[in-house]
Write a protein that binds this DNA or RNA. Sequence first.
DNA 1: ACCTGAACACCGTTCAAGT
DNA 2: ACCTGAACACCGTTCAAGT
Lengths: 233, 233
Amino acid sequence: MREPDATVAREPLNRARVLKAALGIIDAEGVEALSMRRLGAELGVDPMAVYRHVDGKDAVLDGVAELLWEELPDACPEDGDWAASLRAFASAIRSLFHAHPHAAPLMLQRPVLPVPQLEKSHQQLEALQAAGFDREDAAEILRTLISFSTGYGLAEVTCYALVDGEAWPPPGSERDLLIAFAQFLPPGTPARLVDVAIALWAMADSDATFESSIDLILSGARLRLERRRGASE
Amino acid sequence: MREPDATVAREPLNRARVLKAALGIIDAEGVEALSMRRLGAELGVDPMAVYRHVDGKDAVLDGVAELLWEELPDACPEDGDWAASLRAFASAIRSLFHAHPHAAPLMLQRPVLPVPQLEKSHQQLEALQAAGFDREDAAEILRTLISFSTGYGLAEVTCYALVDGEAWPPPGSERDLLIAFAQFLPPGTPARLVDVAIALWAMADSDATFESSIDLILSGARLRLERRRGASE
DNA sequence: ACCTGAACACCGTTCAAGT
DNA sequence: ACCTGAACACCGTTCAAGT
């Protein structure tokens, strides 16, 4: 008879626990704080024991990327509204960057095809094809949407990183903004460039800009659908 | 009298030379190959001498990001065609990713406001305002364009990284593509997901997708300009 | 058969010792 | 005043030695 696994004096390590701990460290202190030794310490385990469950540091980072894509909610295609589904998808991607400013960039940077990313993309593609798009158009639209959402999210968190712990956008008057931004620019930078930085990255309503760009992409998609329908009739 | 600087037995180190060497290493072997010691070796110099000209490794990476933004061609607004200028800007950003697949991601990831980025953005903003956009709209459009171009470029180079030295997209029949992609997915991944990967990242015409997305953004911008003009008259 | 931890070949950065 | 390179506190990973 095997030993009963009731006595879990110390929960056995597994890949999932390792990755969750890694994400925790990255969220709290940034990617550069993650090390295999630190990971072992965090898990209360010999640092080298981690290698039993994971293939090395790169594999840990790949795994964290996968974890993040898993966090994306599944499409709920019951209502059959492909546009609403795409919009939710795009917003969820952007939200992931906000929830994990340090970790989310990994989603784009690991040379892997995370299975959950493909799974979610599959759902969106199905919804688009069900709505009458052919597969090429569907893929093109989805690709545009993913690229934009990740690019936008990345740009936002890179701005947060400027002020790190501080609030973003820096609260207060436009004059405070000016001062805050000027600190990140070499002394002697012309004021006109500080203005550009503010106009581009701090002044506009980030949510509204994102939404209206998504609108643009979606209306482009809608147009293509009409044309396709017109041509096939 | 000072010593004439004619005898340049060994060209004196300076920030620009350090950064150029760093970019060279990253281009050739990837970011993870860059180390301060390696940098010193590449320059034929005591590794610690590099610290005289640069503030540390992070500053080197910041500097490389700056170098890349500098490579972007300036706007040539003589013809006054704001849309053409924006399109060239977007294409140039994407081209930078193709030219520096390993280094270009740094453009988005360093918590700095690279002055040349602001400079180039300034030129685009001016062109837009000259065409009748108000500053908020101009900033929003430019922000959307930059986010999309960088996101798209980043997605592309992450795909290249999958096959690294190999050609991209992998040449040959659709069947070869299937096999090539399947190798990067865990064994037992459903074929349907391999299909998704191919449809999303290998099948579509990358250039055409990019251009048509830019069209979308530009036509949205044009629409806003019309409205703005209509309202003010 | 499994795990540990010593050891190797690297890091970035500091700083005392030299000139 | 300047530069060197030893030294410190870390890395990721391997692997022999233990149990």
